[in-house]
């Protein structure tokens, strides 16, 4: 399955916008595990996933060409 990954803030320093080809990943929980294994820097961070611009609040099925965004919190002012 082909997915488009978009990341923001500090996360975009180690996950650059890209298309990834994944097998055996059907849902956002599996994708999250895949991302945290591929990019261990994510393990110590707070972030939120969104699929096609909708924030994910529970595990959700992924489909071909979904756009997944990884958003960290900002606090600066």
């Amino acid at each position: 399955m082909k997915l488009e990954i978009i990341s923001f803030g500090k996360i975009s320093e180690f996950i650059t916008g890209q298309e990834i080809e994944v097998s055996e990943i059907d849902n956002t929980d599996q994708l999250q595990q895949y991302l945290e294994t591929s990019f261990p820097q994510l393990l110590g961070m707070k972030y939120k996933l969104a699929v096609n611009q909708n924030i994910i609040q529970a595990n959700q099925q992924l489909t071909e060409n979904d756009q997944v965004a990884i958003m960290p919190p900002f606090s600066g002012g």
Binding site: M45, K46, I55, M71, S75
Partner: peptide, 26 residues
Amino acid sequence: RDLFPIPPKNGEVLNCAENGILGVLP
């Protein structure tokens, strides 16, 4: 909290003093 239910730990996210900020952005 619907976005980020748990506050980040101290030092997990850098602030302007640590990370820098272009004046026009804020």
